[in-house]
C-alpha cells in the first residue's frame, strides 16, 4: 500500500508523535493536533513515541528523513534533531520542519502541518 505518488510539488509527509510514555506534552495540545489532523483528510503517520524509535535505531526514521519534505509534530526541535541523529539520521532545516507541541499551540501547529496539502475534505464524509 504505497501512497508515494505526490499530488502537488508542495506535498510533504506529516508525522505526529504521541509521546505515549511520558506526560510532558500538554494533553490538550496533543489531542487537538491529532483530532484536527485525523479530520483533515490528509494521510499521515502517527507514532506512539519517537524516543522509543530512536532508542532502537528504527530504520523508519531514516526512510522518513530521506523521503523528501517532512513535517514533524513532536517536542523541542533540538531534542528531535538529536533523537534522529542518535538513530543515525541527519535532519536539515531545508527539508525538515519540527513543530513543538510542548510550547506551541495546536492553533499554530496544525495550519503549518497542513500547509500545501490537498485539503478537499474526506470523500463521502460521514458524521
Amino acid at each position: 500500500m504505497n501512497q508515494s505518488q505526490p499530488q502537488t510539488p508542495s506535498n510533504h509527509r506529516v508525522v505526529y508523535c504521541n509521546c505515549t510514555y511520558a506526560k510532558i506534552v500538554p494533553e490538550k495540545t496533543k489531542q487537538q493536533v491529532l483530532s484536527e489532523l485525523s479530520a483533515s483528510g490528509v494521510a499521515f503517520d502517527a507514532f506512539a513515541d519517537l524516543c522509543q524509535m530512536s532508542a532502537r535505531k528504527d530504520p523508519v526514521l531514516k526512510e522518513l528523513a530521506e523521503s523528501g519534505q517532512l513535517k514533524i509534530a513532536a517536542c523541542f526541535p533540538r531534542a528531535v534533531k538529536w533523537l534522529f541523529h542518535a538513530a543515525g539520521v541527519t535532519l536539515t532545516d531545508e527539508k525538515h520542519e519540527i513543530l513543538n507541541m510542548r510550547e506551541q499551540s495546536a492553533d499554530e501547529i496544525v495550519p503549518l502541518l497542513l500547509e500545501g496539502q490537498p485539503l478537499s475534505g474526506r470523500p463521502d464524509h460521514e458524521e
Binding site: L34, A43, A46, V60, G68
Partner: peptide
C-alpha cells in the same frame, strides 16, 4: 481508534489516497 492504538504503543498510519505516508519497511 487512533488515540487508543497510540496509547497502547502502536504506530498507526492513516492512509486515504491523499498525501504521502512512509513506505513499508
Amino acid at each position: 481508534l487512533v488515540s487508543t492504538l497510540l496509547t497502547g504503543g502502536y504506530d498507526v498510519t492513516l492512509a486515504n489516497g491523499r498525501g504521502l505516508v512512509r513506505d513499508n519497511q
